[in-house]
């Protein structure tokens, strides 16, 4: 019973982190699916989302508004708007002018953008860790108080539910809406979609905006869950989310979700049963193994050579 509770606790920890990895991974995978480039500045967009949310929360608090649902919704909307415009602007400034050139050029442009945004926040907000207010506190406890107690906090529940809503909305959007259909068309064949009258530039911008908005959601959730943010935290999260996207099959949206969850659980079980020191070793070994046996990732489709 004890061991089972311990295992479930580590599983919950892993799924919590994993679902936020998934939210960030969507941005990588959608952009890759459509224009075949890796947007290295995506982690920074997520970090900017978290900063915006924190600024909004602090702003509301100074205005005397503390009603939790309102604070969360306003913070979420602010973060999504700022991050989306940032995502849009990054594409417009750094990627569109070099689109269609050699593959390395947009990649380098993306790395440059990532460094630029990171240092911009360093300068604007300072390099110190900033505490994030714990807005959602408390939770459920399972098990008897004298032995190991499993805890499921309201914050973790919020993360699960929000992720679930975002993922379902995205799936519906991609499969049902006009823009979603256009997205799928563009990812299959950009040139052909263009010929058929789809405004591909708009669709590509839309992908960046959607990815950035989801990253902003993750930024707010993780900021509250962890308790502090700093200008570098987008980099590490971005790396993990990118790994999740590759693990699940880059270019595939369900793959990104699956990859995120697997990565989160693998990390948490490694820390729980081996040692926290091996966390990254195990998750990256997992990545290498999967890529050895299934180079396109778990749910990725093999790339058909287009003639």
């Amino acid at each position: 019973m004890q061991d089972l509770l311990y295992f479930s606790q580590q599983l919950i920890n892993g799924l919590t982190i994993g679902s936020t990895y998934a939210l960030i991974a969507i941005g990588y995978t959608m952009v890759y699916g459509i224009i075949g480039m890796i947007n290295f500045a995506h982690g920074e967009i997520y970090m900017i989302g978290a900063y915006t949310a924190l600024i909004a929360i602090t702003g509301l608090a100074t205005l005397g508004i503390t009603w939790l649902p309102l604070v969360l919704i306003v913070a979420l909307i602010c973060a999504m708007i700022v991050a989306s415009s940032m995502g849009w602007a990054v594409e417009r400034v750094a990627y569109r002018p070099v689109r269609g050139k050699h593959r390395l050029i947009p990649l380098i442009s993306a790395i440059g953008m990532s460094i630029f945004l990171q240092n911009y926040v360093h300068l604007a907000q300072g390099s110190r860790n900033i505490g994030f207010p714990a807005l959602i506190q408390g939770g459920f406890l399972f098990g008897s108080p004298d032995t190991f107690q499993m805890s499921l906090s309201y914050m973790q529940i919020t993360i699960f539910i929000t992720t679930l809503i975002c993922m379902s909305a995205l799936t519906l959007f991609i499969s049902r809406s006009r823009i979603g259909r256009a997205c799928r068309a563009v990812s299959q064949d950009l040139g052909m979609a263009n010929l058929l009258g789809i405004d591909t530039n708009r669709i590509i911008s839309a992908t960046f905006v959607i990815g950035a908005a989801l990253a902003a959601v993750a930024g707010l959730l993780l900021g509250m869950y962890y308790g502090s943010i700093d200008p570098l935290f987008g980099f590490i999260a971005g790396l993990k989310a990118f790994t999740a996207a590759v693990l699940g099959g880059i270019g595939s949206i369900p793959g990104a979700m699956l990859g995120g969850l697997i990565l989160g659980v693998a990390e948490s079980l490694t820390s729980g049963y081996l040692s926290g020191e091996y966390k990254d070793v195990v998750s990256f070994s997992l990545l290498i193994l999967i890529l050895l046996f299934k180079p396109t990732g778990l749910l990725g489709k093999p790339e058909v050579e287009k003639i």
């Binding site: 606790q9 982190i17 935290f233 926290g276 020191e277 966390k279």
Partner: peptide, 20 residues
């Protein structure tokens, strides 16, 4: 006796372990 990675933000697994 265990190490963590400086810069990490998620310590839920470690804390679960400490509780256990």
């Amino acid at each position: 006796f265990e190490g963590i990675t400086a810069g990490d933000k998620d310590f839920s697994s470690l804390i679960t372990k400490l509780k256990q």
